[in-house]
């Protein structure tokens, strides 16, 4: 009888704990689904695979939810997303040929700038530029420039000292600006010929 009572108590406690974890998982999902999706996309997961990859990240989170310290949910999901993206890219052995020709092919000098820069084209061009960026800079760039986090938040999400995060943001920006200048120079050259 005593054993049965103990078993029941343990079972109830376990259910309560699991209920709390389900609730926490739901909160993590609601607060971070779009962020995880965009991080995966901008870290190089192809459009066709990004929904599945997002799901994988949350499956990982659901298995580890008890281990994630309160307040570190977003950082956990971000780092899971980055790892998932890198694995996806390695698995797929995506082409790293992101030279100027590939980028310039996205820009047709015969078109007016407004027509040229439609959303799909712009996103494709951005992805090409990001593909040329080292992964550590790329992650910092995505968080700071695309997701709007502050430098200290970027540092916290990546588990870095603030100075390192600031340096990565700056170098990523320099890399991005240089690539944009190169594209513009090529475009100008293409339009002139």
């Amino acid at each position: 009888m005593e054993d049965a009572a103990l078993t029941m108590t343990a079972s109830m406690a376990s259910s309560a704990g699991e209920g709390a974890e389900a609730s926490r998982l739901r909160e993590m999902f609601d607060a971070n689904y779009e962020l995880v999706w965009r991080v995966l996309r901008r870290m190089g997961v192809p459009e066709a695979d990004v929904d599945d990859a997002t799901q994988k990240c949350f499956v990982v989170a659901s298995r580890r939810v008890a281990d994630i310290r309160p307040g570190e949910e977003r950082g956990f999901l971000f780092q899971t997303a980055v790892r998932t993206a890198l694995t996806e890219r390695r698995t797929r052995r995506r082409s790293r040929e992101t030279g100027d020709e590939a980028m310039v092919s996205l820009l047709d000098p015969s078109m007016a700038p407004d027509e040229q820069l439609d959303h799909a084209r712009k996103r494709a061009l951005l992805d090409h530029i990001l593909d040329t960026m080292p992964d550590d800079l790329r992650a910092a760039f995505v968080l700071f420039e695309l997701e709007g986090f502050t430098t200290s938040e970027v540092a916290s999400l990546q588990g870095l000292p603030q100075g390192t995060a600031a340096s990565r943001i700056r170098r990523a920006r320099e890399h991005f600006d240089a690539q944009v200048r190169r594209i513009q120079a090529r475009r100008g050259k293409g339009a002139a010929t």
């Binding site: 779009e34 996309r41 799901q55 712009k122 996103r123 061009l125 420039e145 695309l146």
Partner: peptide
Amino acid sequence: DLGAELVRSAIQDRPSPAARRRTAAALGI
């Protein structure tokens, strides 16, 4: 600026509600 245009295109990028629903259903939440 072209760079701002490119960044803006990504900021407006978002998953489809259907994909979100599928993932939520798969997670049971």
